[in-house]
Amino acid sequence: MEAVLKNLASAAELLAVAAHSGVVEQWDKQTLSRAFHWARYCEHIFSRFHSNPEMRGIMEKQLQLTNQSLRAAFPEYTEVSFSDLSRCQHLLLVGLLNNPELPISIMKILFDTWSPASANQSEYQDVTGFCNHIIQCKSACKVLSPFTGASAVGADAEVQGVMLMERLGALLSRGGEACRAEHFLDSVLQGCEGAAEHFCLVIAAALLTTKNSAAQTASQGFLLDWLHRKHSVLQLMCSALPAALLIDLAKEHLKFRDAYCDVLKKWASDMEYSVSEGEWVQTSTKRTVSFQKLTEHFLALFEACPPLREDVEKELNALNIADGDFDVRGLSVWGDLLSALNN
């Protein structure tokens, strides 16, 4: 254990040196490979211990200590947290590439084309072409993205959805970590501020990943419960996602279907009749959905889940009766919705 902690401290020092010290001027291919080897070791430590609260606590404490001393040595130093360790190679790379003292020969190694001939006989994995490969993948994605219209959520959101499920699964796997998982989802939501609609796609993709194990079913259940509590996210999903995707989700998850139906009813209840427009409109300043759109949502949902129709119509009928059961347009949103649905 002590050795692991010592290694962690060294890794943080390595990241600091790579980013801020002029020592990198002395680096050669061997040093570079060793540094990446070290970073991979940290990634391994992360995946080994991240779901162990006790170990993580100890390691976090160690990192805090190291951070303090490193801040003293390098004023521009950015602290390394335990969760940063999962992307240690990336942090190392960013630090190195931003260090003006990095020898150009080292940069060339990273951006070179990897070939079996250039592979060194070092004990460490060859880092030649590390950046070259990243650039190739990124560029290839951009080239292909105009053609991937077949995916309802997009390839990136699909991958992100899988990532979300994996992370959630890992957090939930040890039990009693529900609050951490909750916190994780909250922080992701926060991180996606400004890209909330994209986050809706990610959640949809996560809920549509194939369930191969009980753990995955549990993760999706957890995500649905969380969504239930985050009413704004749920509403945004219902208004922003394509109708077909919402239907897929409703077919896949009963909980989502009910939540979706509730959102639709809530939208209806928030509507008032605008005499000037001759139509039901939402009272809130942000009009997310029109009466016409609302009807379409209901109809699509009924088509996908026929048994739902009877229940919902019964409910709407009761609400209409409570409103006085007048057969005049513009008096009860429920009555007008019922007639629109049965048109």
């Binding site: 999962s86 992307r87 490969h133 992100q160 990532m163 992370r167 922080s187 991180g191």
Partner: peptide, 12 residues
């Protein structure tokens, strides 16, 4: 980028 950071997935 935000998702990668929160989920601890390296860009590569």
């Amino acid at each position: 980028q935000a998702l990668m950071k929160h989920m601890g997935v390296p860009p590569e």
